[in-house]
Computed example of a mutant assay.
Amino acid sequence: MRCQPYRENAVYIWTKNKQQCLICNEQTDTSEPLCSACEAELPWLGGQCGVCAVPLPSVGLTCGACLRRPPAFTRVEAAWRYAFPVDSLITRFKHQQQWPMGRLLGALLSHHLQHAFAEGLPRPDLLLPVPLGRRRLRQRGFNQAGMLAGWLGKSLQLPVQEHWLQRPHEGAHQQELDAAARKRNLRRAFALHPQARVAGRHVALVDDVLTTGATAETLARLLLKAGAARVDVYCLARTPKPGD
């Protein structure tokens, strides 16, 4: 006895759904909308500074900048070098509101972090997304760092405090400035919510791309001043030094 009416067309079965790769549009052979061939071709961050994750020729090194002046944050964990096609996927997520791109990158970053935790990276107590100012949040309609933190928190089973970090003062867009101007632009830009409780806790900042590290440095100093025990940074991609 049939419990469903007969149809000539095949019935859609969710559990047997095959996704298409978001890069090449071919059918995927993985659980994510990314085929194995495209995943292997992503600009994975190999050799890098053990502190700020800037790309270096080999692993196990610390860059000259971190040796001369150690940053306030302890470690940066990034999955990729900021290069094609990751830069295009981030742009489509961040500026064109294509959520599947961000969701895919967030899932892959989660896998990267799970591996890092298994290799000895200390797990943080909570995740804090880098905040947007009110004006930019109204223009964009969402905070990409907040969305990434939400996806990471769910997959890594870590609490997320989206509103503990605030940006009451907005300056020029960081992407439009050089390194020195970025630092000046961030003076007094951030604040902690009065109900934020970071004293004695290991926290991790979440953002999409780390460029000069000025934003991460400013926020890490703010958190350490409030009593945080350790500040790490989790991001999708790390830009190389100019000229590299």
Rank of each mutant, 00 (worst) to 15 (best):
G50F: 01
R138D: 03
F117R: 00
G47L: 06
L113S: 01
W80N: 07
M101L: 01
P131L: 07
A118D: 13
A107H: 09
R136S: 13
E77N: 09
S58Y: 10
C35T: 02
L137Q: 15
V59W: 04
Q98L: 10
M101T: 02
P70G: 06
P131H: 10
G141P: 08
R134A: 14
T91H: 15
E41Y: 01
P85I: 12
E39A: 14
P131Y: 09
Q97K: 14
P70V: 11
C24L: 04
E26F: 00
W44F: 11
P100V: 04
W80V: 06
F84S: 08
L56K: 01
E41D: 14
L108Y: 08
E119H: 12
S88D: 13
R75Y: 13
L108W: 13
V86G: 00
R136K: 10
P100T: 08
L109M: 10
R138W: 13
A107L: 13
E32T: 09
A79P: 05
L113Y: 09
P70D: 07
A37H: 04
G46I: 05
R138I: 10
R103Y: 10
P57Y: 11
Q27G: 00
E41V: 02
T30D: 01
L126Y: 11
V130M: 01
G146H: 10
C35Q: 03
L89E: 01
L104P: 05
P129N: 04
R135F: 01
L126N: 05
P129G: 12
G146Q: 12
V86T: 10
N143S: 12
C38K: 02
L67T: 10
H95K: 03
E26Y: 01
L34G: 04
A145K: 04
P122K: 02
L109E: 03
V51A: 00
I90M: 11
G50N: 14
L127C: 09
G106L: 07
G120L: 07
S58V: 14
Q144A: 07
C49W: 09
S58D: 13
P129C: 05
